[in-house]
Amino acid sequence: MNARIMKHPILGERDPGKTMQFTFNGCAYSALEGETVAAALLASGIRTLRVHEEKGTPRGMYCNIGHCYECRVTINGIPTVRACMTLVEESMIVEAGTVLPTPLQKGGHHGCLIP
């Protein structure tokens, strides 16, 4: 299935605009002009944008309009950027959130223990 809706019975054709390249966790992806990071990754079949900072369970886009911060990623080195609110730009570097150290918690771990 092609995930992109190029033709729509009411909204008409989607102008593809220019195609841009970006990376997510080091892998290359492409995006159409006007696609957010969340949309471009979804179009490539990627739903997991980060893992829970403590439990490591996968998380993806939830509200898609900036309210919930479930889609937070690191973009060009800036952490906690909402993937659903950020348009892809050429050569953008996107990284998923990872598990963070919880040294003060009972049974918690230090950052250095994480591979």
Partner: peptide, 18 residues
């Protein structure tokens, strides 16, 4: 991942067209 609010699906479909 794959669970979303109904509004999220609306915007993804009609605005981002994915």
């Amino acid at each position: 991942p794959g669970v979303m609010s109904i509004g999220a699906a609306q915007v993804m479909t009609n605005v981002q067209r994915v």
